[in-house]
Write a protein that binds this DNA or RNA. Structure first.
Length: 801
RNA sequence: GCGAGUGUGGCGGAACUGGUAGACGCGCAUGGUUGAGGGCCAUGUGGCCGUAAGGCUGUGGGGGUUCAAAUCCCCCCAUUCGCACCA
């Protein structure tokens, strides 16, 4: 036969599939539906990365397999195209970001098609399309109306030289990425989404998610629920109370001092009573100078200052305790104040040692003269009045009862998760659809006026003074108030990139709908997403954010399911050939297009799946690609052996074992072993002069989801008129899988000494007799008494002497 | 520091509920395809000893359970990821 020339034949099949819409998802089809979702890419200027291929091939294989299994498959793709790199490139090259985005999307689309992905390209969504962000804005307005979008102050990274707000990425190490001048923390009024209102639901929803335990625990960790109590400490002389959150109210009798964050309001409210207010203010200033980076990274020095003139009363012991200000306490977590229990917390212990404070044992154990005793999940209370002798769990309950009775506190739940800072001072993002009116305050843009589109401008560079570039566009900013028609101004901040990606999977179900984000019946047909694959790095942020929006939309009766995703997997990174993370600066980036040109898309797909454990990081190996190509060459050549001759029983058995193995491996994301099994089959099959046409065809179907082009071509060359897109996926016949012979290992004291071949399912007694009578074994036993014989049918016989 | 994962040939990686360690691929070696190179085919390829038959040894290290351990238990080491002054 002719040579295998992937370049020609792959183009041919891609044209055929895409022109004939072979991967079209049909709304309301009678077939069972299957929704396979991959994280849509950010269309960067450098084009696709081999990592994208790895991220998509898993569900590509599943999608193709599901079609062959009779499912109506929705396997969509789109572009998460708002964002900084495009904007920065646009500013530098002086090309409109719209144009940059469109060009990049074109390149990506070509690359996706050249890889033979079975996406339904009629459902492509683009987050920067006004028809799309219309609904991103609509969702924001619903959040706003429900009180879940609000304004508050925060600190932003600000470069005084560029006069621009920077992302964390642009201010690594406290320096501006562009001009290297120092970055300061600047207070700014920005938008927040109240994701904390959904903390409990987001946590509970994890139960229904099918995923690796690691992915669940990372999300749970992010949400960070802790149960404890709020306790009120009086501050005599002032009219103030210090409220602390603690997970361990049982240790109240051991609280010998208190620590508040430098930002704590008490410092302002009790100012006149604090005699060393000057020193405190100096400390506050120092703390403010520290970036979040320094405050969280430089953990060694425990600095702090004692408040002179005021003290607090421990509501348990009734003793007065000193109050400190220290930056190891964060205003953003809990109440911004803690009761310090130095006996049983290492940080409090270190602090107490530095300032020579009382360290009191309240849970039995350890040696407090050396270190804090922190093994306190269990234990017995001491030195604690009415709690003495109680186990920890009971003591927590008793203390809460006491606090409630005394009106000194109550049981409380606290979350680590903070509200979502929802703003960017940039041009290339969704405008936040709010109008600021002197009379009416913040007014949402009426829904019928959506979308609020980005104004056409010539300069989209960030404006100075930390404002969005939109702020400088008078004709866009100045609008009448929708309520009172008075003079008003548009909000000029745009949304963060996480916005558009929080609901894109909903739009795929009805991408062209002009009246709604998606038709409810279509959502009902397609949701939930049956399988969602993406990067490990998105497990916390993106997945949680999108789950939050989904929960909210469910409460608004916009979507039919509580949770958006049924199953989540995450692929491992592909590292450079040098074992380092691929990056432009290291020059170790592998371009998929090059590999496709040299070896073909089927080879690339196959190699990437074969490269290693799907969920683990693995380095790229160029000669490994050759191996994948060699395999396809063998498959191609095997065509010459096709005949109507009956196959040897061994090959038939192997075929059915291969069907079973490959199918199972694919479902378990074990693509590397699935391919190994396919390779083994070809290696064995080519040892025979012929292969039966049906056997070969079955093999092609099995290989099709992984290497669709070559298998379509060979199927056609077999004379079959129908393509393989909906050809039934092979199912193994269990009766054909069983071998009639078994190799039995005979070992003596656990060491393999001989192997024998016997008929399948020989009973234990016979097997033992055969084994013991083997000459080699006789020799090894050397007439020593046999103590014991263990027989595992079809596997081994172990003789103990 | 806490949590999760990983550790197996020269390399990527296999090994089901404990039952032939190293599947499959790469690389390498020898031979063939009668010029070379490539390609392809065959054979071999954990280490050590041995011409060979064969033997010993071997899954990060140390101990244990078991007829039998890469797999289970305990202690250590290394490494990756996540969270990180979380009260």
């Amino acid at each position: 036969m002719t040579q295998y020339e992937p370049k020609k034949l792959e183009k041919k099949w891609q044209d055929y599939w895409y022109q004939n819409k072979r991967f079209e998802a049909i709304d309301f089809s009678d077939k069972p539906k299957y929704y396979a979702l991959v994280e849509f890419p950010y269309p960067s200027g450098s084009g696709m990365h081999v990592g994208h291929i790895r991220a998509y091939t898993s569900l590509e294989v599943i999608a193709r397999k599901r079609r062959m299994e009779g499912f109506n498959v929705l396997f969509p793709i789109g572009f998460d195209a708002f964002g900084l790199p495009t904007e920065n490139y646009a500013i530098k090259a002086n090309i409109h970001p719209r144009k940059v985005t469109d060009d990049n999307i074109l390149v990506f689309t070509e690359q996706l098609k050249a890889s033979g992905f079975s996406f339904d390209f009629d459902r492509v969504v683009d987050t920067t399309d006004a028809n799309y962000y219309h609904w991103t804005q609509w969702i924001f307005i619903q959040l706003f109306k429900q009180g879940l979008a609000y304004r508050n102050k925060t600190y932003v990274n600000y470069c005084t030289s560029c006069q621009v707000v920077l992302s964390n990425e642009e201010s690594q190490g406290g320096q501006c990425d562009r001009c290297d001048s120092p970055v300061v923390q600047r207070e700014k009024d920005v938008w927040f989404l109240k994701i904390t209102a959904y903390a409990e639901k987001l946590l509970a929803g994890l139960d229904t998610l099918e995923t690796l335990p690691r992915i669940k625990s990372e999300q749970a960790n992010w949400i960070g629920k802790s149960v404890g109590a709020i306790i009120h400490f009086d501050v005599p002389k002032t009219d103030q109370q210090l409220k602390v959150f603690t997970t361990r109210p049982d240790t109240l009798f051991g609280a010998t001092f208190m620590v508040i964050a430098p930002e704590h309001p008490l410092l302002e409210n009790a100012r006149s009573h604090i005699t060393n207010i000057q020193a405190v203010q100096t400390y506050q200033k120092q703390a403010k100078l520290k970036t979040e980076f320094e405050r969280t990274q430089l953990i060694k020095d425990k600095t702090g200052i004692r408040l002179e003139g005021i003290e607090a009363i421990n509501p348990g012991t009734k003793a007065t305790v000193p109050i400190f200000v220290a930056d190891y306490v964060m205003m953003g977590y809990g109440t911004g104040a803690i009761m310090a229990v130095p006996g049983h917390d290492t940080r409090d212990y270190a602090f107490a040692k530095t300032y020579d404070l009382e360290i009191k044992e309240v849970i039995l154990g350890g040696d407090l003269s050396k270190e804090a005793y922190t093994n306190t999940d269990e234990g017995t209370l001491v030195n604690s009045d009415f709690l003495n002798g109680m186990p920890v769990e009971q003591a927590i309950g008793s203390m809460i009862e006491y606090l409630v009775q005394e009106n000194r506190g109550f049981k409380a739940i606290n979350f680590k998760m903070k509200d979502w800072a929802f703003n960017r001072q940039r041009y290339w993002g969704e405008p936040i659809p709010i109008i600021h009116c002197h009379q009416c305050g913040m007014v949402p843009v009426p829904e019928e006026s959506l979308p609020v589109t980005l104004p056409e401008v010539t300069s989209f560079a960030p404006s100075t003074d930390g404002e969005s570039p939109l702020a400088g566009i008078e004709e866009w900013v100045n609008v009448p108030c929708p309520q009172c028609q008075g003079k008003a101004k548009r909000e000029t901040d745009t949304m963060p990139q996480w916005a558009g990606s929080s609901w894109y999977f909903l739009r795929y179900t009805d991408p062209h709908n002009a009246k709604k984000l998606a038709d409810y019946d279509r959502l009902k047909y397609w949701l939930p997403v049956d399988w969602y694959n993406g990067g490990m790095e998105h497990v916390t942020r993106h997945v949680i954010y999108s789950r939050f929006w989904h929960h909210f939309l469910y409460d608004m009766n916009v979507v039919p399911t509580k949770e958006p995703y049924k199953k989540r997997t995450a692929q491992g990174l592909i590292l450079g050939p040098d074992g380092d993370k691929m990056s432009k600066s290291k020059g170790n980036v592998v371009n998929p297009t090059e590999t496709i040109n040299r070896y073909g898309a089927d080879t690339l797909r196959l190699y990437i799946l074969f490269i290693g454990d799907y969920e683990q990081a693995t380095p790229w190996n160029e000669s490994g690609v050759k191996g994948a190509r060699r395999f396809l060459d063998k498959v191609w050549r095997l065509f010459d052996n096709v005949s109507n001759q009956k196959d040897a029983p061994y090959l038939v058995t192997l075929l059915h074992q291969t069907i079973e193995g490959v199918s199972n491996d694919i479902e378990q994301v074990k693509f590397n072993t699935a391919i190994a099994k396919l390779m083994t089959f070809v290696n064995e099959a080519q040892k025979y002069p012929t292969i039966h046409k049906e056997t070969y065809l079955t093999f092609l179907k099995l290989l099709n989801p992984l290497a669709p082009h070559i298998t379509e071509e060979l199927n056609q060359r077999l004379g079959n008129a129908n393509d393989l897109v909906f050809a039934p996926f092979p199912i193994a016949d269990p009766s054909q899988m069983i071998e009639d012979k078994a190799v039995i290992v005979i070992s003596i004291n656990g060491k393999v000494r001989d192997k024998i071949e016997v008929a399948k399912d020989v009973d234990k007694e016979t097997l033992e007799k055969i084994a013991v009578s083997q000459p080699k074994i006789q020799e090894w036993c050397d007439n020593k008494p046999i103590k014991k014989v263990i027989v595992i049918p079809n596997k081994l016989v172990n003789i103990v002497i």
